[in-house]
């Protein structure tokens, strides 16, 4: 009897622990047709369903904040490898798809020697990437720009600095500050959801 009460108590504790991250937004019922860095068609979030996902939102012309967030994804990936946690996928989605073609994204990852075995870079039609970031609660509006002598122009976005944790049912469970994320915190959250 005492054992049974203990087990009940323990399972309640465990369940409440797992449920402590509220659902921020649900990607479950939606489907976005995107393209990865290898120029392959990818259905998001279908291709990562059943796994936890750590996602950030970037544009590669960003030299400061986006590489910081991306480097933080790399640090999280390394920690998970060390702790032998394998059920996590990484996604970096560009909200500047007109500049960030699959080739540009592949180069962005390649020059940083990122491990793409469980990390996908996504781009696609602007209308689709806009829909994804809107659903994710991420804002990206053109701020400054640079005009070159020959008239070429590149844009710098004012954007939400964000990393998100998505559960196995494609529900966003937590927002983190992309450039200043506490790695221990997200590792703990991953363990709680895993």
């Amino acid at each position: 009897m005492r054992k049974r009460v203990f087990l009940l108590f323990a399972s309640i504790l465990l369940i409440s622990c797992k449920e402590k991250l509220p659902v921020v937004e649900d990607f479950g019922g939606v489907h976005y047709s995107l393209v990865n860095q290898k120029n392959e068609n990818v259905g998001f979030p279908d291709f990562v369903k059943g796994k936890l996902v750590v996602i950030n939102y970037i544009f590669t012309n960003c030299p400061d904040i986006c590489p910081l967030g991306t480097n933080n994804l790399r640090l999280i990936q390394e920690r998970l490898k060390k702790e032998k946690i394998n059920n996590v996928e990484f996604v970096s989605l560009s909200f500047d798809p007109e500049f960030d073609t699959p080739e540009v994204l592949a180069k962005f990852a390649g020059i940083r020697s990122l491990d793409l075995r469980n990390w996908t870079f996504l781009t696609g039609d602007k209308s689709v990437t806009d829909a994804v970031i809107k659903k994710a609660g991420v804002l990206a509006v053109v701020g400054d720009s640079t005009v070159f002598k020959d008239g070429r122009k590149i844009f710098y976005y004012i954007h939400t600095d964000r990393i998100q944790l998505i559960d196995a049912d494609a529900r966003i469970r937590k927002n983190y500050k992309g450039s200043e994320i506490n790695i221990d915190e997200i590792i703990n959250d991953i363990k709680n959801l895993g």
């Binding site: 030299p63 701020g143 400054d144 004012i158």
Partner: peptide, 10 residues
Amino acid sequence: KGNDLMGMRE
């Protein structure tokens, strides 16, 4: 800019 928006300027 605001809570968690980031921008860049010259």
